Simulated scan of single mutants.
Amino acid sequence: MSALEIERQDEIAIVTLARPPMNAMTTELLEEASSVFGELAAQESVRAAVITGQGPAFSAGLDLKVVPRLGPSEQRRLIMALNDAFGALYAWPKPLVAAVNGHAIAGGLVLALCADCRIAADVALQVSLAEVKVAVTYPVAALEVARAELVPAAARRLILLGESLDMQQALSLGVFDRCVPPRSLLLEAVGQARRHAELPSKAFATIKRELRATSLARIAAARAGDGEPRLEEWLGEETRRAASAALRRPA
């Protein structure tokens, strides 16, 4: 079963994470995302895209009930899927707008950070990069995207200290560009994508690639199997203990 739903509104593709309530990321979802955005990049009739989620969350990242129990080969496949998905979205040659409908946690926030414009619904939501709290170190693509897109103060608080931000903090630190009433989120995101779609496509793709060249080079090397330290050792006993403790905490 597909974990993504794709809709077209003329020249705009709307890609929806369809694993509610939390749209937790699986290896299969990430592999599908890489494939879908590769196909959309090749379609001349698609000029821009919006990515959003079903339910109360944009995405809460990886499933902590499953990931710490993966064996070595499953971990390696997941790491490659993370690098491929985040790499594909961050390098996507057309305008990409994130319509953040709810919680954006860990890999879910990284996914939003891959977008060129980030619009959030004005709802009570959690914004965090919780990896350090559950003893999960960052694959190359996730860290490169977060480091490139966050201002130093936000990177320190989110990446290193694992803090959670509310909407106003996320806006003030530039994590999101703006927030809108939830009922108008998708309309606003599609409208923004249409405006960006009017930019000259070849110039946009070239400038985006050159603007992100340093990060994209590191991600490309990781996708090729080079320079990815997580491939040798990623999740261990510390991760299992920290993830179990996190799951026991009240919401």
Rank of each mutant, 00 (worst) to 15 (best):
I119G: 10
I119V: 15
I119A: 08
D122A: 12
D122H: 13
D122M: 11
D122P: 08
A124L: 04
L125Q: 11
Q126S: 14
Q126V: 15
S128T: 11
L129H: 02
E131V: 00
E131Q: 10
K133C: 10
A135C: 13
T137F: 11
T137C: 04
T137N: 13
Y138T: 01
Y138G: 02
P139K: 01
P139D: 07
P139V: 09
V145Y: 12
V145P: 00
A146T: 00
A146E: 10
R147K: 12
A148I: 04
A148Y: 06
L150N: 06
L150F: 13
V151P: 09
V151S: 14
V151L: 10
A153W: 10
A155C: 07
A155T: 03
R156I: 06
L161V: 00
G162D: 02
G162S: 04
G162E: 08
E163W: 12
L165R: 10
L165I: 11
D166R: 08
M167G: 06
Q169E: 15
L171V: 07
L171H: 12
S172D: 15
S172G: 12
L173D: 06
L173A: 04
G174R: 04
G174W: 01
G174K: 00
G174D: 06
F176S: 06
D177H: 08
R178C: 13
V180M: 07
V180G: 03
P181K: 07
P181C: 02
P181T: 14
P181N: 11
R183M: 13
L185A: 11
L186A: 02
L186S: 03
L187F: 11
L187S: 06
L187P: 00
E188I: 01
E188K: 08
A189V: 04
Q192T: 14
Q192F: 05
Q192I: 13
R194W: 13
R194D: 06
R195W: 02
H196M: 15
H196E: 14
A197W: 08
L199I: 05
P200A: 15
S201C: 09
S201H: 10
S201Q: 15
A203M: 10
A205I: 11
T206M: 05
I207H: 09
K208I: 07
E210Q: 14
R212L: 01
A213R: 13
A213V: 02
T214C: 00
T214S: 07
S215E: 03
A217H: 09
A217M: 09
A217F: 07
A220H: 03
A221E: 03
A221L: 07
A221H: 05
A224H: 00
D226S: 08
E228K: 02
E228H: 03
L231C: 02
L231M: 11
E232L: 07
E232D: 14
E233W: 09
E233N: 13
W234A: 05
W234H: 09
L235Y: 10
L235S: 06
L235D: 10
E238A: 15
E238T: 10
T239D: 11
T239Y: 13
T239K: 14
A242N: 12
S244E: 13
S244C: 03
A245K: 07
A245E: 15
L247F: 09
